[in-house]
Amino acid sequence: MRLRGGTGRQTGDRPEVQDTSGPDTSGPAVELRGVRRRYGRGAGAVHALAGIDLVLPRGTFTAVMGPSGSGKSTFLQCAAGLDRPSAGSVHLGGTEITGMGETRLTELRRSRVGFVFQAFNLLPSLTVEQNVLLPMRLAGQRQDRHRAEAVLAQVGLAGKARRRPGELSGGQQQRVAIARALITAPDVIFADEPTGALDTVTAAEVLGLLRHAVDTLGATVVMVTHDPAAAAWADRVLFLADGALAGALDRGSADRIGARMAALAPRRDSPAGAAV
């Protein structure tokens, strides 16, 4: 199954990774071709991904949903270069990452991929500004404090640069994480249950920021979530079941998304076995 979204928006130049070709800003942000991921061998093998073909255009917001064990986490890890597929290829910003060595792959993730996690993953000993600039520091780039100030203002944290994460609310900490993801103008931002630890009102504020990053800043967001209300903020929702794509829904309401999810109960007789 091959799914394509609407026309993507160009997002300008991206930082290049040493010894790799620069991103193709005219092509898709993410492309998976025949991606499979198997854990273990023989009769006990788990086929977490059973052959994913997918193209995600730039400047779009995609939510990925599925029942527990459908392969959502494995999909995100393979697409983001955090895990290696057993077969197939992954392209980020026009660069194939499947066969990259770990050093080059780490460099690419630092400069061309942004991450937002449920647990925020901020360093408590650093200030807000230092946390935001950390990807640039790790990538060996000049730490642009003016850009950090601008990005913090975009996520509603103007004046908070000198604070420590512990002085902020959960919603404010997630805003810092979004600013950190935006700082390098990445090819794609991967968000893993970004609202899972937030109350309903704060979750809506964070999702509004991700939506704003796509609509106004030209960012590309891929979000794994279990929450139909969160997925309703996306341009397109992709559904996974038993490690395979099981359909898509464009601009769906929370009710329509929830109904589609209810129809995707895990199939015990699936040949793919349990996914993770």
Rank of each mutant, 00 (worst) to 15 (best):
residue 148 A to F: 02
residue 214 V to Y: 02
residue 50 A to Q: 14
residue 213 A to S: 15
residue 140 G to N: 12
residue 141 Q to G: 03
residue 266 P to W: 10
residue 115 F to A: 02
residue 146 H to Q: 15
residue 210 L to R: 10
residue 75 F to R: 01
residue 254 A to P: 15
residue 170 G to L: 12
residue 160 K to M: 12
residue 47 H to M: 09
residue 190 F to V: 11
residue 274 A to T: 08
residue 246 A to T: 06
residue 167 E to H: 08
residue 3 L to Q: 04
residue 240 L to I: 10
residue 244 A to S: 12
residue 265 A to Q: 11
residue 276 V to K: 05
residue 98 T to G: 04
residue 41 R to H: 12
residue 218 G to H: 10
residue 183 I to H: 02
residue 140 G to D: 03
residue 221 V to N: 03
residue 243 G to W: 01
residue 187 D to L: 03
residue 262 A to S: 13
residue 41 R to Q: 13
residue 116 V to A: 12
residue 235 D to N: 13
residue 168 L to I: 06
residue 141 Q to P: 02
residue 33 R to W: 07
residue 133 L to R: 04
residue 122 L to Q: 03
residue 35 V to R: 00
residue 62 T to S: 05
residue 182 L to D: 07
residue 249 L to M: 13
residue 96 E to H: 01
residue 221 V to K: 05
residue 116 V to P: 13
residue 111 S to I: 00
residue 3 L to H: 13
residue 97 I to P: 01
residue 210 L to T: 13
residue 88 G to M: 04
residue 130 Q to N: 14
residue 42 G to K: 06
residue 20 T to W: 15
residue 30 V to T: 08
residue 53 D to M: 12
residue 66 G to W: 03
residue 61 F to A: 08
residue 79 A to V: 04
residue 80 A to V: 09
residue 4 R to Y: 06
residue 271 P to K: 11
residue 217 L to N: 14
residue 133 L to D: 04
residue 217 L to V: 09
residue 236 R to E: 15
residue 87 A to W: 07
residue 92 L to M: 05
residue 88 G to D: 00
residue 217 L to R: 14
residue 273 G to C: 10
residue 151 V to L: 15
residue 154 Q to N: 07
residue 113 V to A: 05
residue 180 R to T: 01
residue 94 G to S: 10
residue 256 R to N: 10
residue 248 A to W: 01
residue 59 G to P: 02
residue 62 T to E: 04
residue 245 L to I: 14
residue 161 A to N: 00
residue 85 P to S: 04
residue 70 S to T: 11
